[in-house]
Design a protein around this nucleic acid. Structure first.
Lengths: 350, 350
DNA sequence: TGACATACTTGGAACGTTCCAATAAATTTT
DNA sequence: AAAATTTATTGGAACGTTCCAAGTATGTCA
């Protein structure tokens, strides 16, 4: 099995040239004669030579390693899986290969994997940070001149690039949609008030409310875990109000599904008796019953843009932070009660 | 920014010892005096030293690189995302870091990423191969003594380890379940007949059929793309038969969801008017309406086992192929019509 | 013809680590 | 007290590549 490694020297001998010439061929230099190049390439093929990037990278200390790191907080969430696919497609085309690590919101794991990736010589990092990530977690990388792009979630105070979705606009569009359908009591359900994402979405909600001539009722903004269970909880608290809402903008799709569950246990049908709007447009959103009206953020596209941003920073050698905001768009389906009419109900998502 | 790299020599000078001693400390050797070790560790911390695994790996040519590769055919499929998470958790604990690449069933991409990973010095590869992968695609790796584990899908004729789920048993259990509910016309829907997985599941279906005293009707086995659209297609063809089925074992969950869609467009309610069983137990299976009865293969657990198998091979230095089959279990939910009774319906999956 | 440019090719040093054989100092054995 | 053993430390070579300065032919110009 494990034969001895074939090196440039072996192919130099086989081709009757020096190792320097072989190196030039490998780099596609125009300095080398066509005939020599052909001889070398033959030898490469015949001996089954495999380029050793580790060695190459060791020599050119300053140069880039063609490896980037990618750290996500929860890969089982299809949003992040899609994000990863988007990033991967761009990186592959650029000749990069990527490390992937899942932190599962565990901040110690996150620190470990970042350190490990650094030892392996990544030339850039894309991270969807675990909850509780601090600016300090990126300081070492920044000091070493390794560009970092934070995706999806923001880390307050960190001087790194970021790409987030337009939370403000998304929430605002949801409110506008519900107001146009005639709703006057629109709730904002779910989410932890200690995150930047929460505040951005809440602000979009408030702004659109006042723009629609509705006043902001503090009781209608009910925080809860950004999960299905949190959604159940939130809708229950909201419906116990003296003047309950007739519609809700939810923090994300998971909350929206929970709200639907909660409504049903009160014998109300989402879409018909109460309008629900989500955020994220996860895969299940369009196949759920009723199909979820939600804000689509195109995770793959976001992944691609994130990758491009990182590549730009790697190539330019700058660590100057850049902040991008990804457009979102409201996808109207059934849960907001707008499209329920004759038959369409079962067709969507096919 | 990009300060000069701190090397063992720098910390050797700072600590007043030789680079060799620093190296010993880094490797946790017991040869070095406690006091010296402490001095060195202080210097490491103060200078912000980062271990250069590339250089280390270059020296110990034979040794393992602490990098493994992972290639999947479709990361957007939550099955593979979960598989990746399972692999990741084991690899992280073992101090490995993994490359991830998504091929999207594109065999050329697959070849490229495998080559690229090899240049980067992976010491093992886990792959869920793209359709059309041949044994030859792994030959170079095998020759270099790099262990390969094929997961989920088999590659005929390849002398590499594999870990697949027990397709035969899963399909058989589904049939048994449906037969016990009184169904006599049970269809097998979806899947491409040119894959090993298809044949294994079909064989399980046939065996269980005859064991239940039912005869195999060729018309009831209808192939189709293993996707939601394929499921719609398959159920439509099946229902047009002179003697249509009353239940179906589906190739996978995507097909099962398509079958549900198709049934509804014929005004039949899956679970009540027709029994549907899926395969895979993807995340959406339990939250769908009706919740899907399906064969659970525990993708995360499979990922963990796959990773363990690869680690074993890396550590033992053997490329001797090993074939593992992962247990499966039928999860009875609503779509097979077995559990619909008073209230439970909306509770599941919350 | 000699000076000079052009087109290739090359040996050796360097990158940051580990390993080996050698050494020095402290301790034990004879 | 010399020899042997143990305990700690070390300089230099090596891993596979790239880069640099320098080399050898050729061809061109005055």
């Amino acid at each position: 099995m494990g034969r001895e490694r074939v090196t440039v020297i072996d192919i130099a001998n086989a081709a009757g040239v020096s190792k320097s010439t072989v190196s030039l061929v490998l780099q596609g230099s125009s300095l080398v004669n066509e005939g020599t190049r052909a001889k070398v390439n033959v030898a490469i093929r015949e001996l089954g030579y495999v380029y050793n990037r580790g060695a190459a990278n060791l020599r050119q200390a300053n140069a880039k390693s063609k490896i980037v790191g990618m750290v996500v907080n929860d890969l089982t969430n299809s949003f992040f899986a899609e994000l990863a696919v988007g990033i991967d497609s761009v990186m592959q085309s650029a000749g990069y290969v990527q490390f992937l690590a899942n932190t599962g919101e565990n901040i110690d794991r996150q620190r470990e994997v970042i350190a490990s990736m650094r030892e392996h010589g990544i030339s850039g990092l894309i991270i969807s940070p675990a909850r509780g990530t601090e600016a300090a977690d990126f300081r070492a990388l920044a000091q070493a001149g390794i560009p970092v792009v934070v995706a999806v979630r923001n880390v307050p105070g960190a001087r790194v690039s970021s790409l987030t979705s337009d939370n403000h606009a998304g929430a605002a569009a949801s409110v506008r949609h519900l107001a146009e359908l005639g709703h006057r009591r629109i709730a904002f359900l779910g989410g932890f008030p200690d995150t930047a994402v929460f505040h951005e979405r809440l602000a979009g909600y408030r702004d659109a409310l006042s723009r629609a001539g509705l006043h902001f009722d503090e009781d209608l903004a009910v925080g809860a875990a950004p999960s299905r269970a949190g959604g159940v909880d939130a809708i229950e608290r909201a419906m116990r109000l003296a003047e309950p809402p007739t519609a809700a903008v939810c923090f994300n799709d998971a909350v929206a599904f929970g709200v639907c569950d909660g409504l049903r246990s009160r014998r109300m049908e989402p879409g018909a008796d109460f309008a629900v709007v989500g955020f994220d447009d996860v895969i299940e959103a369009k196949t759920a019953v009723p199909a979820l009206t939600t804000v689509s953020v195109d995770p793959q596209g976001m992944g691609r843009r994130t990758a491009q941003l990182l590549l730009k920073q790697i190539n330019s050698g700058t660590t100057e932070p850049e902040t991008l905001i990804s457009n979102v768009r409201l996808v109207v389906r059934e849960s907001s009660g707008a499209s329920i009419q004759g038959g369409v109900r079962w067709q969507s998502g096919v």
